[in-house]
């Protein structure tokens, strides 16, 4: 790994630790309102200041890491699993299944993404889980198309034909040879999507479709800060920096991992 990526890797590790064990990073309660200390600027007592309810911003950013990152990660994982399943089915189960599945994906793609997410969240009710499902639904077509194309490409590979010659069943050949060799494009798409999904999940929270208050979440914190931006800059700037840094770290480290995978697979 190049030296320039070390800080970003450290950031990723730090964010993961914050999401897993927030209490290690702060003793403060992220939801404890203190009406005596509303909109305090950054200082010794409150490192990053306080918000309009007097809650400690540093604690809220630390505790906000989990919902903020979990929705995006969950959405990517869901989309990856569902997309690969749909794509492999479309490629392997014959012409009719392919037509039905591929046209269904086209239908999803024809609806504007944000609208579809709103629809899913409206049906399931707002919350972290429905936000993740909604974002996954929108990203399934991308994964499914890549999966379908890769399976069709690799099906013609000689080593896949050779594997049939050894007596493996079709499912075994897909599991042993097709999917592992198709992993490169999936991983590339997954890392690219992960950054976009973190931004998208913050946007959902921003418009109030994410985890419900008072849960600390970076997008929701940004939304709260808008009304007081003229009085205090800190409740808007620090969650914004958190989102930006998280997305940059995920994208930069992800790109590096992709390049390594590509070099290994000729």
């Amino acid at each position: 790994m190049p030296r320039s990526l070390w800080p970003w890797t450290a950031v990723l590790v730090l964010l993961a630790a914050m999401a897993a064990f927030p209490s290690l990073f702060t003793g403060a309660d992220p939801d404890a309102a203190d009406l005596e200390a509303v909109l305090r600027p950054p200082g010794a007592e409150h490192w990053l200041g306080t918000d309009q309810n007097g809650r400690d911003l540093y604690a809220r950013i630390v505790y906000g890491a989990r919902p903020s990152l979990l929705i995006g990660t969950g959405a990517v994982l869901l989309a990856l699993v569902a997309g690969v399943a749909v794509g492999v089915a479309a490629a392997q189960l014959g012409r009719i299944a392919d037509q039905v599945l591929s046209r269904s994906l086209d239908v999803i793609l024809s609806v504007p993404g944000l609208l579809l997410v709103f629809l899913v969240v409206a049906v399931l009710g707002p919350g972290s889980g429905s936000a993740a499902v909604g974002l996954a639904v929108v990203s399934v077509p991308g994964f499914a198309r890549v999966a379908r194309a890769e399976v069709i490409r690799l099906r013609a590979a000689q080593y896949v034909e050779a594997a049939h010659g050894f007596g493996w069943s079709r499912a075994q050949v897909v599991a042993r040879h097709v999917l592992p060799n198709a992993a490169g494009p999936f991983l590339a798409l997954a890392t690219v999507s992960l950054g976009a999904m973190i931004v998208a999940s913050s946007s959902l929270s921003f418009v109030g479709l994410g985890p419900r208050p008072p849960t600390a979440e970076w997008g929701a914190m940004l939304a709260d800060s808008r009304e007081f931006l003229a009085l205090a800059w800190w409740p808007g700037v620090f969650p914004g920096i958190a989102v930006t840094v998280a997305v940059l770290a995920v994208t930069l480290v992800g790109q590096h991992l992709n390049r390594r995978v590509e070099r290994r697979l000729p």
Binding site: E161, A162, L265
Partner: peptide, 8 residues
């Protein structure tokens, strides 16, 4: 032969 072996 190379293309008849799984590259991994």
């Amino acid at each position: 032969p190379l293309s008849s072996f799984d590259p991994r």
